[in-house]
Amino acid sequence: MIFVIALKELRSMFASPLAWVVLAFVQGFLANVFLKQVDTFMIIQAQLARTPNAPGLTELAVVPMFGAAQMVLLMSIPLLTMRLISEEKRNQTMALLVSAPISMTQIIVGKFTAMVAFLCLILALIAAMSFSLLAGGAIDLGLIAANLLGLLLLGMAFSSIGIFISCLTMHPVVAAVMTLAVFMGFWVIGLAASDPGSWLNWVSISKRFEGFLDGYVSLPDVTFFLVVITLFIFLSIRKLDSERLSA
């Protein structure tokens, strides 16, 4: 049942130009960053060869792309999650899902699954760019795997927050703006958290993501993301349930 909803959601996404525009924007932007980095690497390659323990191709070309991908997700995920629930409310199609013999949990998890599938598509494109380097040299596959995992968790956390905010309003645009504002808030927390001992560091999504950028997959970081994802999915379900009770 979850997959029925997820498939429907993906079909609706790709029926509108939005999904295609987002994919094109993500790909165009990241390809640009990636090419610039590869160019830089070619120029300084000779110097690097003489330096002991120098960063390799993966660190110089691939990792910055993942760093940029964080910002790209921050901007594009609100556009993708904004309509997931709010549009169903606005068009009164929520009644169809609620009257069907499925639970609120299945509805929300189905929609979240659609977002994860979309994220996987973005990740596949990013991975394809990274692996294209194999044609000309060796790359650190472990580091890339850690980066992909980090980006997936980050995208999932952003998506669950976006879905929750989409539950709060009937207007997709309001949901998008609110979601973007919240993500900006997280980003600012990341900037403010310069002192490693500060509690800001502990709650900052971007600081958590930086670990993955360095190829460092730590249990606390993974757990942090999983907790955020679960929390906001749970809140979304509660919100929909409460509407049935009190709206």
């Binding site: 609706s12 068009n91 009164q92 009644a95 013999p101």
Partner: peptide
């Protein structure tokens, strides 16, 4: 709910 079919005031159709 498997035993109920419901048409709300506004038909719940996905226009796309």
């Amino acid at each position: 709910k498997t035993k109920i079919g419901y048409l709300p005031e506004i038909p719940p159709v996905y226009k796309e």
